[in-house]
């Protein structure tokens, strides 16, 4: 999901504080589809991604585009407002109790010698890798992907050569939101969730993106791995409840020493 965030930030320099809440909406959507229509979340993630794409497009067109030239602070506040709305709307509609989506894959476990592998987690991981690669290919190989990167590099220049920059922004925001929607649906069977998860999910993905480097897909991916490994190590060597401390300390160190992140190219 950090990949989605990095796309939104990388392209538009807009900080999406509502990111985690969009993911939570993806999760609840998967939950609704599973509970009402009996669709397995591993099939419905495409639907969730589509719906979130529309949401992201709408937020960009309706709100962010109006202040795209305003100072960063205003955008942060705007997205904070959107985050509050989304999170508490979820709270109103779905209630505060954690829920969990059942998937046919959830009960399966493979034994590989001494290791045992949780199939649901494995599938989630594989699909996440596949989506990241697909997105990277999309940005490099297709025309639309190239226009997105062009608008990111130099919005003025992009306008000069006839790119409809606001539309490209909306598409990029939509794709970013679609990524989190898919991520939400994919993690829904692995992780019990509740509306309050949104904020911490946003903070975690900011960690990942900053550590990996703003606007770099590879960075987002490596950052994600680094943060989870660091947290697991922290849980083993310190105390499970202290594991977040490790990632926040890592964040502070990275912010101070290399604010562009491990894979970021430009300095902020």
């Amino acid at each position: 999901m950090a990949v989605g965030l990095t796309l939104i930030f990388g392209v538009m320099r807009v900080v999406n504080f509502a990111h985690g809440d969009m993911m939570v909406w993806g999760m609840y959507l998967a939950w609704l589809l599973a509970a009402r229509a009996g669709i397995d979340p591993y099939a419905s993630f495409a639907v969730c991604a589509t719906v979130l794409f529309a949401l992201g497009w709408g937020v960009q067109r309706g709100l962010v585009q109006r202040i795209v030239d305003a100072p960063h602070e205003m955008q942060i506040l705007l997205m904070l407002g959107v985050a509050l709305i989304l999170e508490n709307l979820a709270l109103l509609l779905f209630g505060p109790e954690p829920v969990r989506v059942r998937s046919a894959l959830g009960a399966l476990t493979w034994y590989l010698g001494p290791l045992y592998v949780d199939v649901a987690r494995l599938v989630t991981f594989v699909v996440a890798v596949a989506l990241t690669l697909a997105l990277a290919a999309f940005l490099r190989r297709t025309d639309l992907g190239r226009t997105i990167r062009a608008a990111a590099d130099n919005p003025y220049g992009a306008r000069v050569v006839g790119i409809d920059v606001p539309r490209v922004y909306a598409v990029a925001f939509g794709i970013g939101a679609a990524c989190v929607g898919a991520a939400g649906a994919l993690t829904a069977p692995v992780l019990p969730f509740q509306p309050a998860l949104g904020l911490s999910a946003s903070v975690v993905s900011f960690n990942i993106v900053i550590i990996g480097g703003m606007g770099s897909l590879l960075g987002a991916f490596v950052g994600g791995l680094l943060v989870s490994v660091a947290e697991s190590l922290g849980a083993v060597f310190l105390r499970p409840s202290l594991k977040e401390l490790v990632s926040f300390s890592l964040l502070i160190v990275i912010l101070l020493l290399r604010p562009a992140g491990l894979f970021g190219r430009r300095t902020p």
Partner: peptide
């Protein structure tokens, strides 16, 4: 270290979260 805008926001959030985790442990 010259952190501005979003980076400063994140630094302050991170410090507050570290305080919260330390206090609860």
């Amino acid at each position: 270290f010259g952190l501005r805008g979003f980076y400063f926001v994140l630094l302050t959030v991170a410090f507050a979260e570290v305080c919260r985790i330390v206090a609860s442990n």
